[in-house]
């Protein structure tokens, strides 16, 4: 054994493979980041610079004017109150929709997992299949129903719609989570004399924090990003941010102000992006649970 013989750690060479791996990831990262970068840069430029310069370039003269304009005075048709109108509408829709859809999904999932009710499995099966059916199949009759009850085009209407179409995923999410809890827990609570609601409130709900977080993330991003329901059911007074954004950008009269458009787009994306960056692994877990749908 000479000292030059191989010993200890194999010397690492930067191999072609490694370079290839990082090159691929870097190129992919550019592809994924470019649209965001361009949106951000465009929103910080003057229209003149946009017309003359390159859209990927950093602004030579930084301006926050487009953001202010987008927020407070961008026009939808004749109204020029900015996208903040849509923002607050979305908030008003979001809070009750998220709370009610989670509450209903949670109770339904609990009842399905631990209690035997005749026909419940059949109902759950239909509910699951319903998650795959295009919304257009239900929309028109729903509109008629709401019109008959006088709720059509109101805040209550859009909230109810979100609860209805959030039900399959929410129920599945909670049902699967509860199916993973030891059934002995429930049996012990039954033996101790717990009833439906007391077991739910005292035993099950306190254990549900992780799945409640996942459900909240799913619903906040899902409902904030909704376009179709907001457009169809919310009514002129309650149009959510996504709908208003589309109106601002795509139905402008005259010359388009790209910088304001992009600022408005960024503003609309901020809420789900913030949820995404803050929640990190929880978001991924939400996707995974949503994926259980399959």
């Amino acid at each position: 054994m000479t000292t030059s013989a191989p010993s200890g750690r194999k010397p690492r060479h930067l191999t072609v493979d490694r370079i290839g791996v990082y090159a691929f990831l870097a190129i992919a990262a550019v592809f994924f980041l470019l649209p965001l970068w361009i949106m951000l840069m465009t929103s910080l430029k003057t229209m003149e610079e946009i017309r003359l310069g390159s859209i990927i370039a950093f602004p030579s003269e930084l301006t926050f004017e487009p953001w202010l304009k987008a927020w407070a005075s961008a026009c939808t048709g004749l109204d020029c109150n900015g996208i903040r109108v849509g923002f607050w509408n979305s908030v008003k829709i979001l809070i009750p929709s998220v709370a009610l859809s989670i509450a209903l999904g949670c109770v339904t999932g609990y009842a399905l997992s631990f209690w035997r009710v005749k026909g419940a499995n059949m109902m759950f099966g239909i509910l699951l299949l319903g998650a795959f059916i295009p919304y257009q199949v239900f929309l028109y009759p729903l509109v008629r129903i709401f019109a008959t009850t006088g709720l059509y085009n109101s805040l209550a209407c859009i909230v109810i719609v979100h609860v209805i179409f959030g039900l399959p995923v929410m129920t599945l999410l909670f049902r699967n989570f509860y199916a993973g809890l030891p059934i002995e827990l429930f049996k012990a609570a039954r033996v101790d004399g717990g009833g439906f609601w007391s077991i739910f409130l005292l035993v099950i709900l306190p254990m549900s924090t992780p799945i409640l977080i996942v459900a909240t993330i799913l619903q906040v991003t899902g409902i904030w990003n909704d376009f179709l329901f907001g457009l169809t059911f919310a009514g002129r007074e309650n149009l959510p941010m996504t709908v208003q954004l589309n109106n601002i950008v795509n139905s402008t009269q005259g010359e388009r102000t790209y910088n304001v458009d992009m600022a408005a787009t960024m503003l609309t994306a901020i809420v789900p992006l913030a949820v995404y960056f803050v929640s990190g692994r929880w978001f991924v877990r939400g996707i995974a649970s949503g994926a259980v749908k399959g």
Partner: peptide, 10 residues
């Protein structure tokens, strides 16, 4: 087996 790299030794 060589499935784990050694730090020192042969």
């Amino acid at each position: 087996a060589g499935l784990i790299e050694v730090e020192e030794g042969q």
